[in-house]
Lab assay of single mutants.
Amino acid sequence: SDIKVHVGDITVELHNVSEEFARLVEEALRLGLNEEQAKEWAHKALH
């Protein structure tokens, strides 16, 4: 599904992702990663 993740003043739109993936992206953003890094990190975490 499509999910918007908000962290501080950052909003990341995720398309066709699981809630778990979105949660991992949100966690990575909170750790200070940028959007691209957060998506990559979440992807690796799920595989």
Rank of each mutant, 00 (worst) to 15 (best):
residue 32 G to I: 00
residue 45 A to M: 15
residue 9 D to H: 12
residue 10 I to G: 05
residue 13 E to N: 14
residue 3 I to K: 09
residue 22 A to Q: 06
residue 13 E to S: 13
residue 26 E to D: 07
residue 2 D to K: 14
residue 46 L to M: 14
residue 9 D to T: 12
residue 20 E to T: 09
residue 36 E to S: 11
residue 36 E to F: 10
residue 39 K to H: 05
residue 7 V to S: 06
residue 30 R to E: 08
residue 10 I to F: 10
residue 42 A to Q: 00
residue 21 F to N: 00
residue 43 H to A: 12
residue 6 H to K: 12
residue 8 G to F: 01
residue 13 E to I: 15
residue 30 R to A: 11
residue 39 K to S: 03
residue 38 A to V: 01
residue 29 L to T: 02
residue 15 H to F: 04
residue 40 E to D: 15
residue 47 H to Q: 13
residue 32 G to T: 01
residue 13 E to W: 01
residue 36 E to G: 08
residue 47 H to I: 12
residue 28 A to T: 00
residue 24 L to P: 00
residue 26 E to G: 13
residue 44 K to C: 10
residue 4 K to E: 10
residue 14 L to N: 05
residue 30 R to N: 10
residue 14 L to Y: 02
residue 45 A to F: 14
residue 24 L to A: 08
residue 22 A to V: 08
residue 28 A to I: 01
residue 5 V to T: 05
residue 9 D to K: 10
residue 23 R to F: 08
residue 18 S to H: 07
residue 14 L to M: 08
residue 27 E to M: 13
residue 41 W to P: 00
residue 29 L to E: 02
residue 35 E to I: 15
residue 21 F to C: 03
residue 21 F to H: 02
residue 29 L to F: 03
residue 4 K to N: 12
residue 2 D to S: 13
residue 43 H to C: 12
residue 2 D to W: 03
residue 8 G to Q: 06
residue 13 E to L: 03
residue 19 E to R: 08
residue 44 K to Y: 08
residue 17 V to N: 05
residue 8 G to W: 00
residue 11 T to N: 04
residue 43 H to W: 13
residue 39 K to G: 02
residue 41 W to F: 15
residue 42 A to T: 01
residue 16 N to F: 04
residue 15 H to A: 09
residue 18 S to V: 06
residue 43 H to V: 11
residue 46 L to I: 13
residue 7 V to F: 14
residue 17 V to H: 09
residue 15 H to T: 11
residue 33 L to F: 12
residue 19 E to Q: 14
residue 34 N to E: 05
residue 10 I to E: 07
residue 37 Q to I: 02
residue 26 E to L: 11
residue 47 H to W: 02
residue 40 E to S: 08
residue 26 E to M: 11
residue 28 A to Q: 02
residue 5 V to G: 06
residue 27 E to C: 08
residue 33 L to Y: 14
residue 37 Q to D: 14
residue 35 E to L: 15
residue 12 V to I: 14
residue 25 V to H: 01
residue 33 L to D: 01
residue 27 E to T: 13
residue 17 V to P: 06
residue 16 N to G: 14
residue 31 L to T: 08
residue 43 H to R: 12
residue 21 F to E: 02
residue 26 E to Y: 10
residue 6 H to E: 14
residue 2 D to Y: 09
residue 22 A to K: 06
residue 23 R to H: 09
residue 40 E to W: 07
residue 24 L to F: 10
residue 7 V to E: 06
residue 21 F to I: 02
residue 44 K to P: 00
residue 21 F to R: 00
residue 5 V to E: 06
residue 18 S to M: 06
residue 44 K to L: 11
residue 16 N to R: 04
residue 16 N to A: 07
residue 47 H to G: 12
residue 39 K to D: 03
residue 40 E to C: 03
residue 14 L to Q: 04
residue 16 N to C: 08
residue 33 L to A: 04
residue 7 V to R: 03
residue 43 H to D: 14
residue 12 V to E: 05
residue 21 F to L: 03
residue 11 T to D: 09
residue 37 Q to R: 07
residue 27 E to Y: 14
residue 46 L to Q: 07
residue 18 S to E: 07
residue 37 Q to E: 14
residue 22 A to I: 08
residue 18 S to L: 07
residue 21 F to G: 00
residue 3 I to S: 07
residue 15 H to I: 12
residue 33 L to R: 02
residue 38 A to M: 01
residue 27 E to A: 14
residue 37 Q to Y: 03
residue 36 E to P: 05
residue 10 I to D: 06
residue 6 H to N: 13
residue 36 E to M: 13
residue 36 E to D: 15
residue 46 L to F: 09
residue 14 L to S: 05
residue 19 E to L: 13
residue 43 H to P: 01
residue 35 E to D: 05
residue 32 G to L: 01
residue 2 D to E: 12
residue 20 E to V: 11
residue 34 N to L: 03
residue 29 L to S: 02
residue 27 E to N: 05
residue 47 H to S: 14
residue 19 E to S: 11
residue 46 L to R: 03
residue 24 L to E: 01
residue 24 L to T: 02
residue 45 A to G: 05
residue 38 A to P: 00
residue 24 L to M: 08
residue 12 V to T: 06
residue 15 H to K: 13
residue 5 V to F: 03
residue 10 I to K: 09
residue 32 G to K: 01
residue 41 W to N: 11
residue 13 E to K: 10
residue 1 S to R: 15
residue 17 V to G: 04
residue 23 R to M: 11
residue 36 E to Q: 14
residue 5 V to Y: 01
residue 33 L to P: 00
residue 28 A to W: 02
residue 31 L to V: 05
residue 45 A to N: 13
residue 43 H to K: 14
residue 25 V to A: 01
residue 3 I to F: 13
residue 22 A to D: 04
residue 46 L to G: 03
residue 20 E to D: 13
residue 23 R to T: 07
residue 37 Q to C: 06
residue 46 L to S: 05
residue 32 G to C: 02
residue 40 E to L: 13
residue 22 A to F: 05
residue 7 V to C: 03
residue 34 N to Y: 02
residue 34 N to V: 03
residue 29 L to W: 01
residue 30 R to W: 11
residue 45 A to W: 11
residue 6 H to V: 15
residue 43 H to Y: 14
residue 12 V to Y: 00
residue 39 K to Q: 09
residue 30 R to S: 10
residue 29 L to K: 04
residue 47 H to Y: 03
residue 11 T to C: 04
residue 10 I to Y: 07
residue 30 R to C: 07
residue 12 V to P: 05
residue 12 V to K: 04
residue 19 E to D: 13
residue 41 W to Y: 15
residue 32 G to M: 01
residue 12 V to D: 05
residue 39 K to E: 06
residue 28 A to P: 00
residue 39 K to L: 15
residue 36 E to T: 12
residue 15 H to P: 06
residue 1 S to N: 14
residue 22 A to R: 05
residue 26 E to T: 10
residue 4 K to G: 09
residue 28 A to G: 14
residue 30 R to G: 10
residue 1 S to W: 03
residue 46 L to W: 09
residue 42 A to W: 02
residue 47 H to V: 12
residue 19 E to A: 13
residue 23 R to L: 10
residue 33 L to G: 01
residue 46 L to K: 04
residue 23 R to N: 08
residue 16 N to K: 07
residue 39 K to I: 15
residue 23 R to A: 11
residue 38 A to F: 01
residue 18 S to I: 05
residue 28 A to E: 00
residue 33 L to K: 04
residue 41 W to M: 11
residue 20 E to K: 10
residue 38 A to C: 01
residue 33 L to H: 06
residue 46 L to V: 09
residue 12 V to S: 05
residue 20 E to P: 04
residue 3 I to W: 04
residue 23 R to W: 07
residue 7 V to T: 07
residue 4 K to W: 02
residue 46 L to T: 07
residue 3 I to A: 07
residue 20 E to S: 10
residue 46 L to P: 02
residue 30 R to Q: 11
residue 6 H to Q: 14
residue 43 H to E: 15
residue 28 A to M: 04
residue 41 W to I: 12
residue 32 G to D: 02
residue 46 L to D: 03
residue 41 W to A: 15
residue 34 N to A: 06
residue 11 T to Q: 07
residue 2 D to H: 15
residue 1 S to Q: 15
residue 9 D to A: 14
residue 21 F to P: 00
residue 26 E to C: 09
residue 4 K to A: 13
residue 14 L to W: 02
residue 47 H to K: 13
residue 39 K to A: 04
residue 34 N to G: 10
residue 26 E to R: 09
residue 8 G to S: 06
residue 28 A to R: 01
residue 44 K to H: 09
residue 47 H to L: 13
residue 14 L to D: 07
residue 14 L to C: 05
residue 37 Q to N: 07
residue 46 L to A: 07
residue 25 V to Q: 01
residue 38 A to R: 00
residue 22 A to S: 07
residue 32 G to F: 01
